[in-house]
Amino acid sequence: MKSLTFFALNVSFVLPVLASLDLVTPPAFLALAAVALLIRRPERAPHLAAALAAALVLAFWVWLSNRLWTVGDDPARRALLLAVRSWALTGVSASFALGMRPAELLNEAMQIARLAPRVGFALYAALNTLPRLAEEGRQIDAVHRVRLGGGRSPVLARTVTLLARAVRSGERAAQSLAARGLESPAPRSWYRPVAWGRRDAAQLIAGLAASVALLALLVALGAFRFGFY
């Protein structure tokens, strides 16, 4: 399954979860997301199980806070609905993160979905910058701790420093990309070509059809309840 297909399917899974306020729809679409992950990267199943277990903590916190402070009709049921939805949303997000390869998605987006290379390579550069900025953040904290007698690095000072360095880094990356001909009018070729075939189309259609069919079934059974809060 292509990254682009996986991305599109996960969007189709997460939207019904976001728009539902019942006990059935969120787990049902979470199950679909898990199936998609197992098809794409079965080796990630244990990680998904761990993520779902961890998401229970978040769900419990949502339930508790709503149970204690929500007023109105049937606060206990509302708290439960919100907790289940939170758990499912976290699960679908985890499934997407575990199954996704960002570089692959960008490559396919540029070649298949016609994402402008200028945007695609800027996103690549940002992906490369993030780990470096995280490390720089740790270094700044270490230096500030020594300077400030053991106290934590001021968040604002650290943020300003990181932002300034990120902006400069982005400027250099843009210059480097332009210098190597990113904006050249010549027809572009690809070192890792990808093509959209019938199989890919079939996978996308089947996945979207499953998503729509599940939603239609839940509506027909009266299980789906529209609502955000």
Binding site: N128, S169, S189, Y191
Partner: peptide
């Protein structure tokens, strides 16, 4: 700064980047 100018996901992609922009055959 070598890190600020490398923007591709891997070394191979980095080396091929200018060639892609110039439309080289695979």
């Amino acid at each position: 700064n070598p890190y600020a100018q490398l923007a591709c996901p891997s070394v191979d992609d980095e080396l091929a980047f200018a060639l892609e922009n110039a439309g080289w055959e695979l």
